[in-house]
Design a protein around this nucleic acid. Structure first.
Length: 328
DNA sequence: ATCATTTGACCCAG
DNA sequence: CTGGGTCAAATGAT
């Protein structure tokens, strides 16, 4: 399944192969992902045999590493292995310079991937259940928006401080249809929780081309950051092998492709493709109900998620569909 | 005590 | 200046 996910991420990359800056990022990420895939392959082949525990842990660690680095790049368009500019060798770290501020690396929000989802709640059900996407979010603001009946909520990943995860989302209730919520996600989770939420990466749909395509491509502008990130690369390994729960029980795409999810402990996965600018991309997703895991939220009831965009046909012959054995 | 949400103040791009 | 986004102190929940 790790391999599977890697391929998926690679595919997501494909989609944005346009801008120059992005090309560099893409190259780096490709290397990282390829490396990760190789490790995953190794790991896979070791699973059957009786290899040493250490060996496997090492591989898993390597995989996580390249994963984490890739995500970091995607989020910040930054550089790899950024060493704090303050990690000078010897000497007093502080000098008598007047202009000293961590302006070195600034994170630009514009460069983060962004996509939208529309979530519909079901009448008899709690809103929070419907809006739960498997991640832990912390609300940090709310604003009344011009001519909008409902305020907009601003959330960021709970693990922002502890793990430097920059993922963010904002939730806006629709004026006309209060049953609908439009959720804008920004940034990809780099926190450990990302590994637990299966459908995250796959379901990420880039914002459909807006008015001007050109503008859209600008999203890939450059910007640097990372500096003050104190996430440890020795992130938890124990949680990497399953991909439980992700979203609401029901997934609905605008082409009426529907994935009903029953009660607890049901799991499914599928794939679909999405094409954009002539590039075909496959999205795979998996979701499973796993009572009492990962998410701290209390969700557990039906709701509906509408993937707003150009979801195309279901593709049973997905190139990598052979890896159907999730959760193995 | 720690962690989350609320809410007006503050910041800043347009 | 305005309005969207964020900060942070106060407040609430555990």
């Amino acid at each position: 399944s790790l391999i599977h996910i890697f391929f998926t991420l690679l595919n997501v990359m494909e989609q944005k192969t346009i801008s120059g800056e992005w090309e560099k990022m893409k190259k780096e990420i490709n290397e990282l992902m390829t490396e990760g895939r190789d490790y995953a392959h190794q790991l896979q082949s070791q699973l059957g045999s009786s290899s040493s525990q250490e060996s496997r842990e090492h591989l898993a660690k390597k995989i996580l590493e390249s994963y984490h680095k890739s995500l970091t790049i995607m989020n910040y368009s930054g550089e790899l292995d950024q060493v704090s500019p303050y990690s000078n060798s010897g000497g007093s770290p502080k000098s008598d310079d007047s202009d000293q501020e961590p302006r070195i690396l600034k994170s630009s929000k514009k460069s983060m991937t962004r996509w939208t989802q529309k979530v519909s709640i079901t009448p008899g059900d709690g809103i929070d259940r419907a809006l739960d996407d498997g991640f832990s979010w912390r609300k940090y603001g709310q604003k009344d928006i011009l001519g909008a009946k409902f305020p907009r909520g601003y959330y960021r990943c709970t693990y922002r401080k502890s793990q430097g995860c920059e993922a963010t989302k904002q939730v806006q209730r629709c004026d006309e249809n209060p049953m609908l919520f439009e959720i804008i996600y920004r940034g990809i989770h780099s926190c450990s929780q990302a590994a637990n939420v299966g459908s995250t990466i796959p379901v990420q749909i880039l914002e459909p081309i807006q008015t001007q395509e050109h503008e859209n491509l600008e999203i890939v502008k450059e910007s640097l950051d990372i500096g003050h990130h104190s996430y440890n690369h020795q992130a938890p390994l124990h949680q990497t092998l399953h991909y439980p729960l992700s979203s609401p029980p029901n997934l609905v795409c605008d082409n009426a492709y529907m994935l009903p999810l029953g009660d607890q402990n049901v799991e499914f996965f599928g794939s679909t493709s999405y094409s954009d600018l002539g590039t075909n991309v496959n999205y795979d997703f998996l979701a499973s109900r796993d009572a009492g895991s990962a998410s701290h939220s209390t969700s557990n009831s039906p709701s509906t998620v509408l993937l707003e965009s150009p979801f195309k046909s279901f593709d049973p012959n997905h190139p990598y569909g052979g890896f159907g054995g999730f959760h193995s």
